[in-house]
């Protein structure tokens, strides 16, 4: 199932035999795969294939029925979402889940403030946070919109804010759930450019994406899920040229 291709890249996350059923339906069925450092792994597959469920299992949003997940060599089987984030695993949501009543700037700022207790901060620490926010604002082109409430942004801006929240953090692994869906060609070019740049700087990305142009444009590796099963996890060309997978992908997609 998992490709035997030699890969010297460090494995950040090791997913082994992970199962999760809803009622009688196996949403994720005995999935094993690795997420390797410094590359973009794309999860593809028809709707309902279990891609988002897999994200939810990784971050602890949902509990696994069985299987193990290791992060940097340590098992994280009973992790809670906030602990996953603090360990360096961040995810975005398909429905964005922005902090709608808060300004663009506060959305980003609060995303890098994980402390629970209201303690005063050192000046240098505050400055470092400011810089991260400025960085994310300028990279996503939201710098002029910083005081606008998230819910008053246009669609593409909302998608970029969802990215900006992740970009400002120090997370090592980004799990992006259809971050480019619905973007116009200009916007998704900008999105791809941001993503490539961040990966170059050392971020590891696992992305759920339907648009084949984007899949081809960014993937270092493609994992193909269908009805909860991992059918392939390989080089992009190998997966995209597999006639069986193409049939599933185009045949079942509505």
């Amino acid at each position: 199932m998992v490709s035997s291709q030699v890969d010297t890249q460090e494995v950040l996350m090791e997913i082994r035999n992970v199962d999760r059923a809803f009622g009688g339906v196996k949403a994720v069925d005995n999935v094993s795969m690795d997420l390797r450092a410094g590359i973009i792994t794309t999860l593809v597959g028809p709707n309902g294939a279990g891609k988002t469920t897999l994200f939810n299992l990784i971050t602890g949003e949902l509990s696994k029925d069985s299987g193990t997940i290791k992060w940097l060599g340590q098992p994280i089987n009973r992790i809670k979402p906030f602990q996953a984030a603090r360990a360096g695993i961040l995810r975005t949501f398909q429905d964005l889940r922005l902090f709608n009543e808060m300004s663009v700037e506060d959305n980003i700022l609060t995303s890098i403030e994980a402390n629970s207790v209201p303690l005063p901060m050192a000046k240098s620490q505050r400055k470092a946070r400011r810089e991260k926010v400025e960085y994310a604002l300028s990279r996503t082109g939201l710098i002029d919109k910083r005081h606008i409430r998230a819910k008053d942004l246009a669609y593409a801006e909302r998608k970029f804010l969802s990215m900006a929240r992740v970009m400002a953090t120090d997370a090592r692994l980004w799990l992006l759930d259809e971050p480019a869906s619905g973007l116009d060609p200009n916007s998704y070019e900008k999105f791809l450019e941001i993503l490539r740049e961040e990966v170059k700087q050392g971020v590891t990305v696992c992305i759920i994406e339907h648009n084949l142009d984007i899949v081809i444009g960014i993937s270092d590796r493609i994992a193909f899920l269908d009805r909860g099963k991992l059918l392939a996890d390989d080089e992009p060309q190998t997966v995209l040229n597999d006639p069986d997978l193409r049939a599933i992908y185009f045949g079942e997609r509505t």
């Binding site: 809670k80 906030f82 961040l90 949501f93 889940r97 922005l98 902090f99 009543e101 609060t110 995303s111």
Partner: peptide
């Protein structure tokens, strides 16, 4: 800010490390 983030989306707040 954490409180307002939780008010607006609990799951997103947790996904960004908020207990």
């Amino acid at each position: 800010r954490s409180l307002r983030a939780i008010r607006d989306s609990e799951s997103a707040a947790a996904a960004f490390g908020k207990n």
